[in-house]
Design a protein around this nucleic acid. Structure first.
Lengths: 124, 124
DNA sequence: TGACAAGTCGTACATTTGTACGTATTAACT
DNA sequence: AGTTAATACGTACAAATGTACGACTTGTCA
Protein backbone atom coordinates (compact mmCIF):
# COMPACT_ATOMS: atom_id res chain seq x y z
CA UNK A 1 0.00 0.00 0.00
CA UNK A 2 1.39 3.34 -1.00
CA UNK A 3 1.61 6.31 1.27
CA UNK A 4 -1.76 7.89 1.74
CA UNK A 5 -0.88 11.34 2.92
CA UNK A 6 0.82 13.19 0.14
CA UNK A 7 1.51 16.86 0.69
CA UNK A 8 -0.90 19.14 -1.09
CA UNK A 9 -0.04 20.13 -4.60
CA UNK A 10 -0.25 23.75 -5.69
CA UNK A 11 -1.76 24.95 -8.96
CA UNK A 12 1.56 25.72 -10.58
CA UNK A 13 2.91 22.38 -9.47
CA UNK A 14 -0.14 20.63 -10.87
CA UNK A 15 0.47 22.22 -14.21
CA UNK A 16 4.02 20.97 -14.28
CA UNK A 17 3.10 17.52 -13.05
CA UNK A 18 0.62 17.17 -15.85
CA UNK A 19 3.33 17.95 -18.38
CA UNK A 20 5.54 15.24 -16.96
CA UNK A 21 2.68 12.77 -17.22
CA UNK A 22 2.12 13.84 -20.76
CA UNK A 23 5.74 13.48 -21.71
CA UNK A 24 6.18 10.29 -19.76
CA UNK A 25 9.68 11.16 -18.75
CA UNK A 26 11.29 14.49 -19.25
CA UNK A 27 14.16 16.78 -18.40
CA UNK A 28 13.71 20.26 -17.07
CA UNK A 29 14.34 21.53 -20.54
CA UNK A 30 11.74 19.32 -22.11
CA UNK A 31 9.10 20.33 -19.63
CA UNK A 32 9.98 23.96 -20.18
CA UNK A 33 9.61 23.50 -23.92
CA UNK A 34 6.29 21.77 -23.45
CA UNK A 35 4.74 24.77 -21.72
CA UNK A 36 1.94 26.51 -23.58
CA UNK A 37 3.34 29.43 -25.48
CA UNK A 38 1.36 31.95 -23.55
CA UNK A 39 2.84 30.68 -20.31
CA UNK A 40 5.97 32.55 -19.46
CA UNK A 41 8.03 31.10 -16.71
CA UNK A 42 11.73 30.44 -16.92
CA UNK A 43 13.72 27.27 -16.95
CA UNK A 44 14.77 27.99 -13.38
CA UNK A 45 11.18 28.20 -12.24
CA UNK A 46 10.24 24.94 -13.87
CA UNK A 47 13.25 23.42 -12.22
CA UNK A 48 12.15 24.60 -8.80
CA UNK A 49 8.67 23.24 -9.33
CA UNK A 50 10.03 19.87 -10.41
CA UNK A 51 12.32 19.76 -7.39
CA UNK A 52 9.41 20.53 -5.10
CA UNK A 53 7.27 17.88 -6.73
CA UNK A 54 10.01 15.39 -6.13
CA UNK A 55 10.45 16.40 -2.52
CA UNK A 56 6.71 16.03 -2.04
CA UNK A 57 6.85 12.54 -3.46
CA UNK A 58 5.04 13.04 -6.73
CA UNK A 59 8.07 12.68 -8.94
CA UNK A 60 11.35 10.86 -8.98
CA UNK A 61 14.31 11.31 -11.22
CA UNK A 62 17.25 9.49 -12.58
CA UNK A 63 20.35 11.03 -14.03
CA UNK A 64 20.90 10.69 -17.73
CA UNK A 65 24.34 12.07 -18.25
CA UNK A 66 24.29 15.63 -16.97
CA UNK A 67 20.52 16.05 -16.91
CA UNK A 68 17.86 14.84 -14.53
CA UNK A 69 15.10 12.89 -16.14
CA UNK A 70 11.87 13.19 -14.16
CA UNK A 71 9.02 10.76 -14.14
CA UNK A 72 5.98 9.95 -12.02
CA UNK A 73 6.66 8.46 -8.61
CA UNK A 74 3.08 7.66 -7.83
CA UNK A 75 0.06 6.71 -9.85
CA UNK A 76 -1.36 9.51 -11.89
CA UNK A 77 -4.83 8.14 -11.27
CA UNK A 78 -4.45 8.56 -7.54
CA UNK A 79 -3.39 12.15 -7.85
CA UNK A 80 -6.20 12.98 -10.22
CA UNK A 81 -8.68 11.28 -7.99
CA UNK A 82 -7.71 13.34 -5.03
CA UNK A 83 -7.50 16.57 -6.98
CA UNK A 84 -10.89 16.12 -8.55
CA UNK A 85 -12.45 15.16 -5.28
CA UNK A 86 -11.00 18.17 -3.52
CA UNK A 87 -12.16 20.43 -6.28
CA UNK A 88 -15.68 19.05 -6.40
CA UNK A 89 -15.92 19.19 -2.65
CA UNK A 90 -14.87 22.76 -2.46
CA UNK A 91 -16.83 24.22 -5.30
CA UNK A 92 -19.80 21.87 -5.54
CA UNK A 93 -20.17 20.43 -2.08
CA UNK A 94 -19.14 17.04 -3.39
CA UNK A 95 -21.82 16.70 -6.02
CA UNK A 96 -20.29 16.17 -9.48
CA UNK A 97 -23.51 16.61 -11.42
CA UNK A 98 -23.49 20.40 -11.43
CA UNK A 99 -19.91 20.29 -12.61
CA UNK A 100 -20.67 18.12 -15.59
CA UNK A 101 -23.77 20.10 -16.26
CA UNK A 102 -21.68 23.22 -16.31
CA UNK A 103 -19.22 21.71 -18.74
CA UNK A 104 -22.03 20.62 -21.00
CA UNK A 105 -23.73 23.99 -20.93
CA UNK A 106 -20.60 25.83 -21.87
CA UNK A 107 -19.90 24.02 -25.05
CA UNK A 108 -17.10 22.01 -23.64
CA UNK A 109 -19.07 18.79 -23.88
CA UNK A 110 -21.04 17.83 -26.95
CA UNK A 111 -23.89 15.38 -27.22
CA UNK A 112 -21.44 13.15 -29.01
CA UNK A 113 -19.14 13.31 -26.03
CA UNK A 114 -22.00 12.36 -23.81
CA UNK A 115 -22.72 9.33 -25.93
CA UNK A 116 -19.10 8.38 -25.80
CA UNK A 117 -19.18 8.61 -22.05
CA UNK A 118 -22.29 6.55 -21.88
CA UNK A 119 -20.53 3.81 -23.77
CA UNK A 120 -17.55 4.03 -21.49
CA UNK A 121 -19.74 3.60 -18.48
CA UNK A 122 -21.83 0.83 -19.94
CA UNK A 123 -18.65 -0.98 -20.80
CA UNK A 124 -17.69 -1.18 -17.16
CA UNK B 1 -20.12 44.93 -18.10
CA UNK B 2 -18.69 43.68 -14.87
CA UNK B 3 -15.03 43.73 -14.02
CA UNK B 4 -13.18 41.01 -15.83
CA UNK B 5 -10.05 40.68 -13.76
CA UNK B 6 -10.99 39.38 -10.39
CA UNK B 7 -8.17 38.44 -8.06
CA UNK B 8 -7.57 34.73 -7.81
CA UNK B 9 -9.52 32.84 -5.23
CA UNK B 10 -7.78 30.41 -2.91
CA UNK B 11 -9.09 26.95 -2.02
CA UNK B 12 -10.15 27.94 1.46
CA UNK B 13 -11.84 31.02 0.12
CA UNK B 14 -13.64 28.96 -2.49
CA UNK B 15 -15.01 26.74 0.19
CA UNK B 16 -16.40 29.70 2.09
CA UNK B 17 -17.76 31.37 -1.01
CA UNK B 18 -19.69 28.25 -1.87
CA UNK B 19 -21.30 28.29 1.54
CA UNK B 20 -22.44 31.84 1.06
CA UNK B 21 -23.93 30.91 -2.29
CA UNK B 22 -25.66 28.01 -0.66
CA UNK B 23 -27.06 30.09 2.15
CA UNK B 24 -27.92 32.98 -0.09
CA UNK B 25 -27.05 35.54 2.53
CA UNK B 26 -25.32 34.77 5.75
CA UNK B 27 -23.53 36.13 8.76
CA UNK B 28 -20.12 34.96 9.85
CA UNK B 29 -21.80 32.80 12.42
CA UNK B 30 -24.11 31.18 9.92
CA UNK B 31 -21.29 30.35 7.57
CA UNK B 32 -19.30 28.94 10.45
CA UNK B 33 -22.23 26.78 11.44
CA UNK B 34 -22.66 25.61 7.87
CA UNK B 35 -19.16 24.16 7.72
CA UNK B 36 -18.92 20.39 7.38
CA UNK B 37 -18.48 18.89 10.81
CA UNK B 38 -15.09 17.48 10.01
CA UNK B 39 -13.86 20.92 9.06
CA UNK B 40 -12.35 22.65 12.03
CA UNK B 41 -11.66 26.31 11.61
CA UNK B 42 -12.75 28.97 14.02
CA UNK B 43 -15.22 31.78 13.70
CA UNK B 44 -12.31 34.19 13.43
CA UNK B 45 -10.88 32.33 10.48
CA UNK B 46 -14.17 32.27 8.65
CA UNK B 47 -14.43 35.97 9.31
CA UNK B 48 -11.04 36.63 7.79
CA UNK B 49 -11.91 34.61 4.73
CA UNK B 50 -15.18 36.47 4.28
CA UNK B 51 -13.39 39.79 4.65
CA UNK B 52 -10.85 38.77 2.04
CA UNK B 53 -13.55 37.63 -0.33
CA UNK B 54 -15.19 40.99 0.03
CA UNK B 55 -11.98 42.88 -0.55
CA UNK B 56 -11.40 40.80 -3.65
CA UNK B 57 -14.83 41.70 -4.93
CA UNK B 58 -16.58 38.37 -4.65
CA UNK B 59 -18.81 39.33 -1.77
CA UNK B 60 -20.52 42.37 -0.40
CA UNK B 61 -22.21 42.87 2.90
CA UNK B 62 -24.82 44.94 4.56
CA UNK B 63 -25.17 45.52 8.26
CA UNK B 64 -28.11 43.91 9.96
CA UNK B 65 -27.96 45.33 13.41
CA UNK B 66 -24.57 44.39 14.84
CA UNK B 67 -23.76 41.66 12.34
CA UNK B 68 -22.56 41.77 8.77
CA UNK B 69 -24.71 39.87 6.34
CA UNK B 70 -22.68 38.69 3.38
CA UNK B 71 -23.96 37.89 -0.07
CA UNK B 72 -22.60 37.42 -3.55
CA UNK B 73 -21.28 40.52 -5.28
CA UNK B 74 -20.78 38.91 -8.66
CA UNK B 75 -22.46 36.16 -10.56
CA UNK B 76 -21.81 32.74 -9.20
CA UNK B 77 -21.83 31.37 -12.74
CA UNK B 78 -18.92 33.55 -13.72
CA UNK B 79 -16.84 32.41 -10.79
CA UNK B 80 -17.60 28.77 -11.42
CA UNK B 81 -16.82 29.15 -15.07
CA UNK B 82 -13.42 30.52 -14.38
CA UNK B 83 -12.65 28.06 -11.62
CA UNK B 84 -13.62 25.07 -13.71
CA UNK B 85 -11.71 26.31 -16.70
CA UNK B 86 -8.59 26.88 -14.65
CA UNK B 87 -8.89 23.48 -13.10
CA UNK B 88 -9.44 21.67 -16.37
CA UNK B 89 -6.60 23.55 -17.98
CA UNK B 90 -4.19 22.69 -15.26
CA UNK B 91 -4.98 19.08 -14.71
CA UNK B 92 -6.34 18.04 -18.09
CA UNK B 93 -4.77 20.39 -20.56
CA UNK B 94 -8.15 21.94 -21.20
CA UNK B 95 -9.92 18.78 -22.28
CA UNK B 96 -12.96 18.11 -20.11
CA UNK B 97 -13.65 14.62 -21.41
CA UNK B 98 -11.09 12.86 -19.22
CA UNK B 99 -12.50 14.69 -16.24
CA UNK B 100 -16.03 13.51 -16.85
CA UNK B 101 -14.76 10.09 -17.68
CA UNK B 102 -12.96 10.02 -14.39
CA UNK B 103 -16.08 11.04 -12.51
CA UNK B 104 -18.06 8.36 -14.26
CA UNK B 105 -15.50 5.67 -13.59
CA UNK B 106 -15.40 6.38 -9.92
CA UNK B 107 -19.04 5.90 -9.23
CA UNK B 108 -19.74 9.54 -8.90
CA UNK B 109 -21.81 9.59 -12.08
CA UNK B 110 -24.39 6.96 -12.88
CA UNK B 111 -25.83 6.05 -16.25
CA UNK B 112 -28.97 7.74 -15.04
CA UNK B 113 -27.02 10.91 -14.44
CA UNK B 114 -25.66 10.71 -17.93
CA UNK B 115 -29.13 10.44 -19.34
CA UNK B 116 -30.20 13.40 -17.30
CA UNK B 117 -27.30 15.37 -18.68
CA UNK B 118 -28.14 14.35 -22.17
CA UNK B 119 -31.60 15.74 -21.69
CA UNK B 120 -30.20 18.94 -20.32
CA UNK B 121 -28.04 19.38 -23.34
CA UNK B 122 -30.70 18.44 -25.83
CA UNK B 123 -33.00 20.93 -24.18
CA UNK B 124 -30.63 23.75 -25.02
C1' DT C 1 -27.79 52.21 33.55
C1' DG C 2 -24.56 48.95 33.84
C1' DA C 3 -22.97 44.40 32.54
C1' DC C 4 -22.84 41.00 29.06
C1' DA C 5 -22.85 38.72 24.78
C1' DA C 6 -22.09 39.09 20.11
C1' DG C 7 -19.66 41.04 16.64
C1' DT C 8 -16.03 43.67 14.05
C1' DC C 9 -11.40 45.21 13.22
C1' DG C 10 -6.63 45.46 13.34
C1' DT C 11 -3.12 42.65 13.45
C1' DA C 12 -0.07 38.62 13.53
C1' DC C 13 2.62 35.00 11.95
C1' DA C 14 4.41 30.67 10.19
C1' DT C 15 4.14 28.33 5.82
C1' DT C 16 3.49 27.86 1.08
C1' DT C 17 3.66 29.62 -3.42
C1' DG C 18 5.39 31.75 -7.61
C1' DT C 19 9.15 33.22 -9.61
C1' DA C 20 13.98 33.56 -10.34
C1' DC C 21 19.27 34.63 -9.95
C1' DG C 22 23.98 33.33 -9.65
C1' DT C 23 27.46 29.93 -8.84
C1' DA C 24 29.42 25.48 -9.09
C1' DT C 25 29.96 21.45 -11.95
C1' DT C 26 30.63 18.72 -15.79
C1' DA C 27 30.18 16.63 -20.44
C1' DA C 28 31.80 17.51 -24.76
C1' DC C 29 34.11 19.71 -28.45
C1' DT C 30 38.34 21.91 -30.38
C1' DA D 1 44.04 20.77 -21.97
C1' DG D 2 41.16 24.73 -22.22
C1' DT D 3 36.74 26.64 -23.46
C1' DT D 4 32.03 26.34 -23.83
C1' DA D 5 27.39 25.14 -23.30
C1' DA D 6 24.25 22.90 -20.42
C1' DT D 7 22.67 21.73 -16.00
C1' DA D 8 22.00 21.27 -11.03
C1' DC D 9 21.93 23.47 -6.54
C1' DG D 10 21.64 26.72 -2.99
C1' DT D 11 19.40 30.50 -2.07
C1' DA D 12 16.24 34.48 -2.21
C1' DC D 13 12.23 37.00 -1.57
C1' DA D 14 7.81 39.21 -1.99
C1' DA D 15 3.13 37.87 -1.96
C1' DA D 16 -0.51 34.89 -0.84
C1' DT D 17 -2.50 31.57 2.27
C1' DG D 18 -4.37 29.39 6.37
C1' DT D 19 -5.27 30.16 10.73
C1' DA D 20 -6.23 32.84 14.72
C1' DC D 21 -5.91 36.19 18.92
C1' DG D 22 -7.26 40.15 21.55
C1' DA D 23 -9.12 44.69 21.87
C1' DC D 24 -12.72 47.64 21.04
C1' DT D 25 -17.82 48.54 20.15
C1' DT D 26 -22.58 48.23 20.66
C1' DG D 27 -27.29 46.28 21.03
C1' DT D 28 -29.90 44.12 24.65
C1' DC D 29 -31.74 42.79 28.88
C1' DA D 30 -32.02 42.78 33.81
Amino acid sequence: MPKKDLPAISPAETEILRLVWQLGRATVQQVTDALPHNRHITYATVQTLLRRLEKKGYLKHQCKSRAHVFSAAIEKEAVIKRSVMDFVDRLFAGDPIPLVHHLAKHGRLSTKDINRLKKLIDAD
